[in-house]
């Protein structure tokens, strides 16, 4: 059978992108396979691991649990959208490097999105609030301690609101 293609327009990292997608294409597959924004990772594909976290209209969600067609008319920010306009790392990303908040890096883009959303809403979170904010992101390397330290460091450095 030929699948119906649905026309969509989604603002991705500030740029309107249009496509025609089958309804069952997940947002993360569209971002990675068609827009080639491969910073967002695919882990479990059923909403458990958090690797595919993106911001939808400024709020962190799992992009494996949204069909691309559902994002039509909405605003998406991926990890590529966190970097500064000249491509250099954001305060948060730099803090992850400095505090060794990653090892293999698979979960990192999801953690960065979760952490940036936290700092956007709450620039000076407590450690408990940091842990709550990243509670939906599985990391099998770090044990989370350095991730918490990285986010705390970013907060101290004023990792300001960078998402519109």
């Amino acid at each position: 059978m030929t699948e119906t293609l649905n026309a969509i327009t989604v603002e991705v990292n500030g740029v309107p992108r249009t496509a025609r997608v089958p309804a069952r294409l997940s947002l993360v597959d569209w971002l990675r396979d068609e827009l080639r924004l491969t910073g967002t990772h695919v882990g479990c594909e059923h909403g458990v691991c958090g690797a595919c976290s993106i911001l939808l209209d400024g709020e962190p969600i799992r992009s494996c649990l949204l069909y691309a067609v559902q994002a039509d008319g909405h605003r998406v920010t991926t990890v590529e959208g966190l970097a500064q306009p000249d491509g250099s790392l954001s305060v948060l990303q730099d803090s992850f490097c400095e505090a060794h908040g990653l090892q293999c890096g698979y979960c990192t883009s999801g953690l960065l999105i979760a952490a940036q959303a936290l700092l956007d809403a709450n620039p000076h979170p407590s450690d408990a609030q940091i842990r709550e904010a990243i509670g939906g992101n599985l990391c099998r390397c770090t044990g989370y301690q350095q991730v918490v330290e990285a986010i705390r460091l970013a907060a101290e450095r004023g990792a300001g609101k960078i998402t519109p």
Binding site: G50, E132, G135, G136
Partner: peptide, 9 residues
């Protein structure tokens, strides 16, 4: 209920 990301949606 779930996590921040799932409660947002």
């Amino acid at each position: 209920v779930g996590h921040v990301q799932t409660r947002n949606r």
